[in-house]
């Protein structure tokens, strides 16, 4: 059993209480699912768009279906899970606001991580380079990126306010994936990605 996972996944895993039910939307190769199952006895399910990812997950004994956040969350009943997790995928959905709404309908809590489009490196490249930014957390060219709804940390906070969603926790990571503690305007400048835990108000 592998007990070391990516830093942002570890942060998410730490937010999940043991012996709960969780749905990981966009679960990739199932690293987080396996961790939650093996180390926190979570009844963890997954949803993944790529067939290769799904097949790898199921072949290793995880409960995963092929599906995507925009279309397939609707099939779940209210409060089916304690947590619905969306790691680094919100910016690639067609309707992020609706996806968030569905997550908070299906789950008692939602955990969302996303890259911060207001990170200073992004700002520099846009302002002085005059080009679409390419960074470690945003590695794509403008024409092949799956990220169609990028946002900043402050944008995300505004959306939560707008939707009447309570932010229970917010962790901002710098470009070395280390948590930083700063007031929101600075976090929005120095954070490369963020992890939010939300609940319905």
């Amino acid at each position: 059993m592998n007990n070391s996972i990516r830093v942002d996944l570890q942060l998410i895993a730490d937010m999940v209480k043991p012996d709960t039910r969780a749905l990981d939307v966009g679960c990739g190769d199932g690293a987080l699912l396996a961790y939650l199952t093996n180390f926190k006895r979570v009844d963890a399910r997954g949803m993944e768009l790529s067939q290769a990812g799904v097949n790898a997950c199921v072949a290793s004994g995880l409960s995963v279906i092929q599906g995507d956040a925009d279309a397939d969350l609707r099939a779940y009943p209210d409060d089916a899970f304690d947590y619905v997790i969306l790691g680094q995928t919100l910016q690639a959905t067609r309707e992020p606001r609706e996806v968030l709404r569905q997550m908070l309908r299906v789950g008692k809590r939602a955990i969302v991580s996303f890259p911060n489009f207001a990170h200073w490196q992004v700002r520099l490249r846009m302002v002085f380079g005059g080009r679409m930014p390419q960074t470690t957390s945003l590695p794509y060219k403008w024409y092949d990126t799956p990220n169609i709804h990028l946002c900043s940390i402050d944008d995300f906070r505004a959306l939560c306010r707008d939707m009447g969603v309570r932010i229970e926790r917010a962790i901002v990571l710098n470009s070395k994936s280390r948590p930083i503690r700063m007031p929101p305007p600075l976090a929005n400048l120095f954070g490369e990605q963020a992890v939010f835990m939300l609940r319905r108000d």
């Binding site: 399910r45 799904v54 199921v58 409960s63 995963v64 279906i65 779940y76 009943p77």
Partner: peptide, 12 residues
């Protein structure tokens, strides 16, 4: 899913 059952699905 709607019945909150434990399900995996693979299209080969």
């Amino acid at each position: 899913n709607a019945a909150a059952a434990n399900v995996s699905f693979v299209e080969v």
